[in-house]
Design a protein around this nucleic acid. Structure first.
Lengths: 201, 201
DNA sequence: AAAAGCAGTGCTAATATATTCAGTATGAAA
DNA sequence: TTTCATACTGAATATATTAGCACTGCTTTT
């Protein structure tokens, strides 16, 4: 989508608000009033510009015939992180596979992103290969929580178990050994804590 | 809300579909066409009846001026079914614990409601006690699918396995025996097929 | 210097849409 | 038996809404 001017953005935002509040797009006249135009053509011009730029779609001869094109313009959903490129922040653009319409506040604390789970190491916690893990960004976590951690450019989902200065990242599947991190020697970079699981069957 | 007639319900459902699909309420003319009426007044009559009964609100002199009154018209979410009362339809009001902001179309096929899972019988399929199972209403299911079935006023989640005239509802946890249903003697009432899992950690 | 995009006004025509009035027919409730 | 709600048809009207034409003025790009 091409960049919008600030005025066009205002119009777009009014349309989004309209849909959110009234559950229907506004008429051109409503936009005209809301924006303080003296002529409906001012609004029409903006709508046509927005359509040219791909922000909306106009349905000819249809009242309130404005359709938001952006999938999730008002509900962007959560970024889905898939394979993580080495040396890049977890939420760097190249790690974001897609956006999924999941309500962040459905989880508590709020979910910040979704992580696609690889492998079976957490199977016994009901987290299977391919599941989407809802993650809340947090640099700290409590004992016993399931966390997302970075270890040498590898992202892993494990249960955190701390005893003194040693942290164990435990799998929930026999055969997968726990990872031991000595806080005196290395730092443990937590990416977040797991707050939920979403699975498509 | 007073009870609606079946015809009124059809109109209401069309309006709901319209909002879901087109993101805006239909015009009276659109309802007229969709319902196969010969006159817009047929649709109008239904709309006024729906308004009297509190299902919708009509905005006078406004195109597409139909507003769903239902809490959650904007974010209907999915009904969460908890404990199921004996002898009552699964989606009867008294079975609906709450509504949860989960996007029905996130799953495929679309989820119609969420069922709170009780017990550990599907643990090895990654479905734990307390999980919310996204369910698509369907009277039929394929072999191997995880289904929601009604057996003597009990709702169970099991994997469907069919051999000839005998259906096995298999648990995914050793120690939980499969339930055998002989279709020659009893009927199996499927409530739906599982299309997803949502868990709050 | 010309062309294109931006941001508007003002008016009119076309048509989409809601609304009103006048009916028919059925079944349930008072 | 009258009244009321349901479930429609049919035609006409009022208004809401989109759409088109002709402008002005400013800024940015070519």
């Amino acid at each position: 989508m091409k960049t919008l001017t600030s005025r066009q953005l205002q119009v777009l935002e009014f349309i989004q608000d309209s849909i959110r509040v009234a559950n229907m797009p506004p008429t051109i006249a409503e936009i005209t009033v809301a924006m303080g135009f003296g002529s409906t053509n001012a609004a029409r011009g903006h709508l046509q510009a927005l359509e040219r730029k791909g922000a909306i779609e106009l349905i000819p001869n249809s009242s309130r015939g404005i359709r938001l094109v952006q999938a999730g313009a008002f509900e962007p959903g959560l970024p889905l992180v898939g394979r993580v490129a080495a040396g890049r922040p977890l939420l760097a653009e190249e790690n974001i596979e897609d956006y999924r319409p999941v309500d962040p506040s459905f989880f508590s604390p709020r979910a910040d992103y979704l992580l696609r789970v690889l492998g079976e190491s957490m199977r016994h916690a009901g987290i299977l290969d391919g599941d989407l893990l809802a993650v809340h960004r947090s640099p700290t976590a409590d004992n016993g929580q399931i966390v997302v951690a970075r270890l040498q450019d590898e992202v892993t989902v494990k249960r955190l178990r701390r005893t003194g200065q040693v942290v164990y990242l435990e799998a929930e599947n026999p055969g997968f050994p726990a990872i031991e991190v000595d806080l005196k020697q290395e730092t443990l970079a937590l990416e977040g804590i797991a707050v939920g699981v979403v699975r498509n069957l």
